[in-house]
Write a protein that binds this DNA or RNA. Structure first.
Length: 220
DNA sequence: AAGCGGATCGTCT
DNA sequence: GACGATCCGCTTG
């Protein structure tokens, strides 16, 4: 085992610290691109490089779940920075966020897409549906619902987990990779404040969700 | 290759 | 009782 050199590196990297998340969601968003989301359950290790996120600014952001004020559902976003906010959407999917800003101030980053690095077999098994029908690996984690499913994220298991605590088994690490070019666009799937450029992605990365089509010359 | 609509249920009014 | 920070499959070009 451990034939994968990437695994040796990732296994010993520490979680990003609390201060990393204790900032404006827009700053955290740009810095999260290129970082690695890690999920540890027992001996199993999942890892994927984050290539697309969205910032949700808090009570003054009409598109954010926190816009309605604190409720049992969104309470994590009003707590301290660096905790998992997981919600269930459209009767089908979970989505994974990280809380930002100090306790009492809402804010979060939605993790929308990533490039699988470790545990690809496990991710494929968790996704199960239609792995080979369209995009191969791209099908695993390109989109917030897919990413959550590939990582086995559910609200009951993961909502409120501490991203800075290694024992939570869910955290983000920095392997020194830096995103070459960051593009901002409007956020996806919202109706309010839909014009704000709060979606961040790595330019040209094939694992970005949605209209990240490859240019003409797209091979077979 | 791109656009449309159904599925499905927790959360808040 | 309505709607949503989505995904998938089917249809059309």
């Amino acid at each position: 085992m451990c034939a994968n050199p990437v695994e040796k590196i990732i296994r010993f990297l520490p979680p990003l610290p609390r201060e990393f998340y204790n900032r404006d969601p827009r700053e955290v968003s740009t810095d999260l691109l290129g970082k690695i989301l890690v999920r540890r359950t027992g001996r199993k290790l999942l890892a994927a490089r984050i290539v697309e996120v969205e910032a949700y600014l808090g009570e003054n952001d009409p598109a954010a779940h926190s816009a309605v004020g604190r409720t049992p559902r969104n309470a994590v976003m009003f707590g301290p920075p660096g905790f998992a906010y997981v919600y269930f959407i459209y009767g089908n999917h979970y989505c994974l966020n990280v809380s930002c800003l100090p306790e009492g101030t809402a804010g979060a980053i939605l993790l929308r897409a990533a490039e699988p690095l470790l545990g690809i077999e496990i991710m494929a098994k968790a996704r199960e549906v239609a792995i080979d029908t369209t995009g191969g690996l791209r099908n695993l984690t390109s989109g917030p619902g897919r990413l959550a499913e590939a990582f086995g994220i559910t609200r009951s298991r993961d909502n409120g987990k501490d991203f800075t605590d290694q024992k939570s088994g869910l955290f983000i690490v920095d392997d020194g990779y830096s995103a070459l070019e960051i593009v901002t666009t409007a956020r996806i799937g919202i109706t309010k404040a839909a014009e704000l450029p709060l979606r961040y992605l790595i330019a040209g990365n094939p694992f970005v969700s949605g209209a990240a089509r490859l240019k003409s010359g797209n091979p077979g």
